[in-house]
Structure formats: C-alpha cells, structure tokens
Amino acid sequence: MKTKLKKSYRFALRSSGMVTLCATIALCVFFYFELNSPLYIFIFIGAIFAFSFFIIQYRVENFIYKRVKKIYDDVSLLESTSFQDQPVTTDMRTLTEEIEKFANNKKLEIETLKVREVYRKEFLGNVSHELKTPLFTVQGYILTLLDGAMNDKTIRKKYLSRASKGVERLIYIVRDLDMITKLETGDLHLDYEDFDIIELVQGVFDLMEMKANKKKITLTFDQDYKEPTLVHADRERIQQVLTNLIVNSIKYGKEGGTTEISIENLIKNKVIVRVTDNGEGIEKQNIPRLFERFYRVDKSGSRKEGGSGLGLSIVKHIIEAHKEKIYVESVFGVGSEFSFTLEKTQKAANVEI
C-alpha cells in the first residue's frame, strides 16, 4: 500500500512548483538567449525547486509547530516532553483527530465530575444526617439532665440509657467508616482459613433469631445440607457479610415472611451463596446505587430501624477484598436476592461435582 505524502509536503511541493514556474518564466529567456543551452534551464529549474521546497517546508513546520505547541500547552493535551526526540506533526488531519479525541475525553471527564459532584453532595448530606441525629439526641438528654432532671433517679437512668444508645450509634458509624476506608486502601488484613460455610450461616441464624422473631420472620436453608461445604476465606469478615445481609432482609422483610439461604456449586472451584427474602423489594432505579455509602432507598429519611447506613457498602468491599463478586436481583413488591461467590477449599474443589 502506497504511503501518502503528508499534507504539509504536498503544500510545500505545490508552493515550490509555483515559485519555480514563476522564476523560470522570468529568467528562462535570459538563460536561453545568453547561454543558448536548455541544460542550464533544467539545472536552474531543479535548483529553484529544491531550494523552494526546503525553505517552504521548514517555514511551514516551524509555523505549525509553534502554534500547535501553544494549543497543546494551553489545553494541556500533551506535555512539553512529548515534542522531544520525535518529529513534529504537521498533518492537519492527525492534529484534528487529536483535538477531537481531547475534546471527547474532556467532555467525558466533565460529565463524570458532574455525576461525582452529585454523589458527593448526597454523601455529605447523608453523613450529616446520620451523625446529627444521634448527636442531637445525646445532647438533648444531657442538657435535660443538667437542667435538673438528674435529681429524679428514674428519669436520670432512662435518659442516660437513651443517650448511651445514641453514642453507640455514633460508634457504629465511625467504626464502619473506618472499616470501609481500610478496605478501600488495602490496609485491612484478611485472615484466610478453611471453614464450613453452612455451619457459619447456622451460627448467624442463631444470633439473629430473636431479631427475626420480633417480625415473625423465618430464617431457613433452602434444603437440608447433610454434608459440609468448605470454603477458603476470612471467616470473621464473611460472617459480617452474612450478618449484614440477613439483618437487611429482616429489616425490610414482611411480617411473617421468610429469609432463605442457599449454597450452590457455581464452577469447580467456586460456590455461590444466595440470601433471598420475600420482603418489600427494591425499585429498579435504586438497584445500581444500593452499595453506596449511606444511600437510602427510603427517601423519607426514616431511621426507625437504626444501623449505620453502611451495611451494604461494607458487604461489597469485603467481597471485593476477597476478589469475589456480589450480585443483587429484586422485584419491587415481591422480594430481593443478594448473592456472592466464594472460593472452595482446594480439597473440596478437587472433589467431582
């Protein structure tokens, strides 16, 4: 395939040709009649053409280079080091493509920043709301006690108990934020071990039994697992994942409903754990943002159920720290299913599925 001349070369060639033509017409008569030899005319034509070409090409490259470099510097498209040890691009098509690419990248960057700005404002608003509610509660009870209520033993005990709950909620929020930060920066160490995921789920069921009974929600497996399912992960963190998911299913579940856990073989070395409920479900537009910090599906701002508002965000970060995947499916008014993958132990993975 033939390589096309750069446009600047074509420009220089045409310009040189015109300069040569004009100079030749003006002087050919002189050379012809004085020297009476066509050879000198052709030598003169070649010399004028070559001289004109190199002068014009040099001028064009310098002209374009200076202006293009100024454009690059102004928009920070390329660093100045990009011009060292390589030829200057004087092809306007290449320049146009680079400018268009730059413009598209900047447009995408601006759109991303706008989205992030919206998320930032929502995040700050949510953090403010989560913190000020328990802070004002604690402050209110303490001020009431200082105003004289502390002399009444019954009121003093009740208000101190309520203030203590407000402080506990603040501790939950700060602790969970600290954990997320460590997970994001990779500072939280995972202690991998082999354990039975079915036994761990049953342990979480036992811990959550009283909470589930208050709403008459049944915690159950999808079947009777007679054999253990061994996985390789951080037992404590996976317990936290299961706890957060089950707490959520109870919190948003229907009274008299069910929270069901199933463990299935996904591929030879993976299992998938599913947490399914028949609660209120999640509207489709809210699903992509479920794992954001403090994101609330309930826009009323109700905090009746308590919690730090960081449970699902922690779940996502713990699973991703294990280099595994988490999924969510939900139908509004029908229920939700959260599922995540775990690696089997090497011994279990070698067993024929």
Rank of each mutant, 00 (worst) to 15 (best):
F332E: 09
V351E: 11
K347T: 14
F205G: 07
L145Y: 00
I261V: 11
A349K: 05
E292N: 11
L143S: 10
F51M: 05
T20W: 02
D298V: 06
F42I: 13
F63C: 11
H317Y: 09
D176K: 00
F332T: 13
I287Q: 11
E227T: 08
D222I: 00
S308D: 00
Q346N: 11
F49R: 00
P288Y: 06
D224W: 05
A149K: 06
Q57E: 15
R303W: 03
T229W: 05
D73L: 05
T181R: 09
D85L: 14
F195P: 01
R59I: 15
R303L: 12
E98N: 10
I198W: 01
L143C: 04
Y252M: 11
V315F: 00
T345W: 01
T185W: 07
G125T: 04
M150C: 11
Y295C: 03
K211V: 11
A103T: 15
R289A: 14
F30M: 07
V29K: 07
A349V: 05
K157A: 15
S128G: 08
F33E: 07
L95I: 11
I41V: 02
A103E: 14
S8T: 04
V247C: 09
G307F: 00
T258G: 02
K7F: 15
R169N: 08
L207M: 09
S52N: 00
Y32F: 08
T96A: 13
V68E: 08
G166R: 01
N269P: 06
Q240V: 10
V174T: 11
Q139P: 07
E305V: 10
Q285A: 15
Q57R: 15
K101T: 14
V167Q: 06
P134S: 01
A47T: 13
R303N: 14
K216V: 13
K211G: 10
S8A: 10
N151Y: 13
V271R: 01
K106E: 15
V334H: 11
V334T: 11
K299M: 10
F42D: 08
P228M: 05
F49K: 01
I282D: 01
K121D: 10
E320C: 06
K215W: 02
S16A: 12
V241F: 01
T243V: 04
I326L: 06
F102I: 07
F54S: 07
I41K: 00
V297T: 09
F123K: 03
H322Y: 05
R274K: 15
K284M: 12
D91F: 02
N213I: 12
N62A: 02
A233S: 08
A26F: 14
G281E: 03
L143R: 12
I155R: 13
N278W: 03
F338R: 04
T3G: 06
E292R: 05
K106Q: 14
G186D: 00
E343R: 12
L312I: 05
T112K: 13
E324L: 08
N36A: 10
M179D: 12
L145F: 01
E337C: 14
S52T: 01
L124G: 05
I180M: 03
L230K: 14
P87R: 03
